[in-house]
């Protein structure tokens, strides 16, 4: 397993993909940090602000999760689908015929890189948002326990998104299909579904267990929440369980279907 993990880490780090994704994520999240901090702290003509104090800080910092998660998700998805796209899966299975070890090592390697993405994402959003929060708002609140919790949990959630990408890629295998599915779901289907389902009382429970909503529940705040049109959220532990359930279900299904068949 150590050898397999080493092999998977080398795969991730030996192409340009990871730092391109990381670079774009940094630029994007610094920008989002500035925009969020600006929009929450700016005074409207009647002299009020949308949000102040620690709430504003939490709302800004938690947008890592609401907006940045597509990067680790893509990282994970591409980690697996690239093997099929470039047919390197054959060589991979030649050196590691055990599919369990393969899935476990790929998942672990991506989890580790996902943690790096998480740390960098948090640093980026803080770099973008904190100066404005200090200058225009009530402060950066970087030592506030609520803020610290948001930052740390954001790192963890980003890593889980990366793992979710791996199991999704393991299941779907076709790179184009997987990327389209990830982008369509995260950028279009889920946001709309969350709004639509959240608006109907009977269905808001369904909205809560969508992966993005579960991730928001873990972090404890969301971009939706910041603008006040969010439904109820799961408790933190509930969000964690739902996210892990996605990972386990997709992983098991992938193991029993795609990873069981002959490659080709």
């Amino acid at each position: 397993m150590t050898a397999a993990l080493k092999s998977e880490l080398r795969k991730l780090l030996s192409t340009r993909l990871w730092w391109i994704l990381l670079g774009v994520m940094v630029v994007y999240l610094v920008f989002i940090g500035v925009v969020m901090a600006f929009s929450l702290t700016i005074e409207t003509p009647d002299g009020t602000r949308m949000m102040g104090g620690v709430d504003a800080a939490v709302a800004v910092y938690s947008s890592t999760n609401a907006i940045g998660y597509v990067f680790p998700l893509l990282l994970g998805t591409l980690a697996f689908t690239a093997e099929h796209r470039h047919r390197t899966i054959e060589q991979t299975l030649l050196v590691e015929p055990n599919r369990d070890v393969l899935l476990a090592s790929k998942t672990t390697a991506t989890l580790l890189l996902g943690l790096v993405f998480g740390v960098v994402a948090v640093l980026s959003i803080v770099a973008g948002g904190a100066p404005l929060l200090v200058w225009q708002g009530d402060g950066a609140y970087l030592t506030d326990p609520d803020v610290v919790a948001v930052l740390l949990l954001s790192v963890a959630v980003m890593a889980v998104w990366a793992v979710l990408g791996v199991v999704l890629g393991a299941l779907v295998t076709n790179q184009v299909v997987a990327i389209v599915a990830v982008l369509a779901f995260t950028q279009f289907v889920e946001p709309i579904a969350r709004l639509a389902l959240g608006a109907v009382d009977a269905l808001s429970g369904v909205a809560q267990v969508l992966p993005g909503a579960a991730a928001d529940a873990v972090v404890g705040a969301s971009a939706f929440g910041a603008f006040g049109d969010d439904g109820d959220m799961l408790p933190r532990w509930g969000g964690i369980l739902v996210m892990l359930a996605y990972v386990v279900v997709l992983g098991v299904v992938a193991r029993l279907t795609t990873l069981r068949r002959d490659v080709r």
């Binding site: 192409t15 470039h86 060589q91 991979t92 050196v95």
Partner: peptide, 21 residues
């Protein structure tokens, strides 16, 4: 078998990827 590689990986890194196992 059919020679298959990730086009973005260098020749050395291709070997290094499989070296641990």
């Amino acid at each position: 078998l059919e020679a298959a590689f990730h086009p973005g990986r260098s020749a050395l890194n291709h070997l290094r990827v499989y070296a641990p196992q």
